[in-house]
């Protein structure tokens, strides 16, 4: 039985190798430039929504905390810039993640130009 299993295993490995090889030779369906426009637009929209939502959440949270402390307006005034900052942080994080991935592809070393 174990012999059969081993043979199956090696058959499977062999098949896996051939499959990987065949896949590697497949022509790429799309060039990167073609694919990147849709991806960039999607990323842009995603980050835009995250920014707006951050401002709203910050403002709402500030107002709510302020409401329970008896000064809703103070909470609102403090919460809005915090939401704005959180939004900027999300945008920054999103953009640096993207550029880091792109740099990695192009073999650009870390750091400034």
């Amino acid at each position: 039985m174990t012999g059969d299993n081993e043979r199956d295993r090696s058959d499977l490995d062999d098949f896996g190798e051939r499959l990987a090889k065949a896949r590697g030779e497949e022509p790429k369906a799309k060039t990167k430039a073609e694919a990147s426009f849709g991806a960039s637009a999607g990323d842009g929209l995603r980050i835009a929504i995250e920014f707006v939502v951050s401002v709203f959440v910050g403002t709402g949270l500030g107002y709510t905390i302020g409401y329970f402390l008896g000064h809703p307006v103070v909470g609102l005034i403090l919460g809005m810039p915090i939401g704005f900052a959180a939004g900027l942080r999300t945008v920054y994080r999103g953009m640096t993640a993207n550029t880091a991935a792109a740099d990695e592809e192009r073999d650009v070393p870390d750091g400034n130009d």
Binding site: I49, E50, V53, V57, A86
Partner: peptide
């Protein structure tokens, strides 16, 4: 820290709204 907390709390909202 407050900025990170707001950033974290806005995740489910932005996930849902999108």
């Amino acid at each position: 820290t407050p900025i990170e907390i707001v950033s974290f709390l806005s995740r489910p909202v932005s996930l849902a709204v999108r």
